[in-house]
Simulated assay, not measured.
Amino acid sequence: MAHIQTAYAKINLALHVRARRDDGYHELETLFAFVDQGDVLTASAAEQDEVTVVGEFGTALTDPFDNIATKALGKLPRANGLRVMLEKNLPVAAGLGGGSADAGAIFRIVREIHGLPDDWQARAAALGADVPACVESLTCIGRGTGTELETIESNLTGTSVLLVNPRIPLATGPVFKAWDGEDHGPMPTGTASLIAQKGRNDLEAPAISICPEISTVLESLNGTDAFLSRMSGSGATCFALYRSHDVMREAAEKLAFDHPDWWQMPGTLR
Rank of each mutant, 00 (worst) to 15 (best):
G58W: 04
L86V: 07
Q37M: 12
S44N: 15
D130E: 03
G128Y: 00
L41W: 09
E56V: 11
V92C: 03
L82E: 00
A33Y: 13
K71H: 08
F32G: 01
I113G: 05
S100E: 03
V51S: 04
N67A: 05
G81K: 06
G95C: 08
T42V: 10
L86K: 14
D119M: 10
T59G: 09
A72E: 02
E47H: 07
D118C: 02
V40E: 15
L82M: 12
N67E: 04
L31K: 06
V54K: 13
P64F: 15
A94Q: 02
A129C: 06
L116E: 02
N89S: 08
V131P: 00
G115R: 05
T62Y: 09
V51K: 03
A133Q: 03
W120Y: 06
V35W: 12
A125C: 03
G98R: 05
A79P: 02
A126P: 11
S100N: 07
L61T: 11
D39R: 11
A60G: 04
L41V: 01
W120V: 04
D39Y: 15
A122Q: 14
A122E: 11
A103Q: 00
L116K: 04
T30R: 12
A103S: 05
I113H: 06
V53Q: 05
T59K: 10
A122G: 06
Q48R: 12
W120S: 07
T62Q: 09
L86S: 11
D119A: 09
D36G: 10
